[in-house]
């Protein structure tokens, strides 16, 4: 069963088509990577799915529901989490407070003005447990802006996951990381997304081939190929697209 589906989705920016008739199908429980050269429309596709934009044409379905016009917070409430390519944490809040924000959202605590948050024990416990799982318990009370790049990325990714979504959309989780950091991050993603549907944009082919069950290749806003990693690795059209634009 497809948990997420786009039907003939097109999106243009003032006459510039960033996406053209994209039919993406994500099966429940799979890890699905979206790859493609720079400017292929990967992040735009994410933005259309997660509610940043309403696509110019076409429809988006999530769990069988038409969510074409849903806003980001609607998508989260329906069970979608998203991380960003450019780290988007709360810089002046501590690591603990960053994660707590997601935990509060998960519990549906939105307009509670009557209880001190510090006294809500289960929230604190859950947040601390998450921090421990992502090895940030040592940096619990440091503001996000004071964390190392790699740690901040971990925070970014786990915030998307801490609302306990059914599907996570990770936009280049290893962007700008060193080899070692990448390795740690991949392990983290593998561990945290266990049993969840995951859609991941990635540039690093090693990461893609080690993580993904299936791969969709985007090129010039269109889907070039879909398939298992092995098939994609042998696909001539994909090779051409990458050789033509990426390796230069």
């Amino acid at each position: 069963m497809n948990i997420l589906e786009t039907k003939e989705v097109s999106h243009d920016f003032r006459g510039l088509w960033a996406l053209r008739n994209v039919n993406l199908q994500i099966e429940k429980g799979e890890r699905h990577a979206i790859i493609g050269p720079n400017g292929a429309g990967k992040t735009t596709l994410f933005n259309v799915i997660t509610g940043t934009y309403v696509p110019s044409r076409g429809k988006v379905f999530f769990k069988g529901k038409d969510v074409t016009k849903a806003k980001p917070h609607d998508m989260v409430r329906l069970g979608m989490g998203r991380s960003f390519q450019i780290t988007s944490t709360f810089p002046r809040l501590t690591a603990f407070e960053n994660i707590r924000m997601a935990v509060l959202s998960k519990r549906g605590i939105r307009f509670n003005l009557f209880q001190k948050v510090d006294k809500m024990k289960s929230i604190t416990e859950e947040t601390d447990a998450i921090l421990k799982r992502i090895n940030l318990d040592g940096e619990r009370d440091l503001p996000a802006s004071a964390l190392s790049y790699g740690k901040n990325r971990s925070l970014e990714i786990s915030m998307a996951l801490s609302t306990d979504p059914e599907i996570v959309m990770l936009d280049e989780p290893t962007a700008g990381m060193s080899r070692d950091e990448t390795h740690t991050a991949v392990e983290l993603v593998r561990r945290l997304t266990e049993g969840k549907t995951t859609v991941i944009i990635e540039h690093d082919m090693d990461v893609v081939f080690s993580l993904a069950d299936r791969i969709t290749v985007l090129h010039h806003g269109e889907i070039l190929a879909v398939g298992a990693p092995k098939e994609i690795g042998e696909n001539q059209a994909v090779k051409d697209a990458y050789l033509g634009e990426m390796e230069v």
Binding site: H73, P91, R100, L104, R110
Partner: peptide
């Protein structure tokens, strides 16, 4: 003062720091 200490207070500070992320965590801005 009390309001700043509640979960709602956290939300306020979150909006100040990164409104976009608040939206992507499922809160209505």
């Amino acid at each position: 003062w009390f309001i700043t200490k509640t979960p709602f207070g956290c939300l306020m500070v979150g909006i100040r720091d990164n409104a976009k992320r608040i939206d992507y965590l499922g809160f209505k801005l």
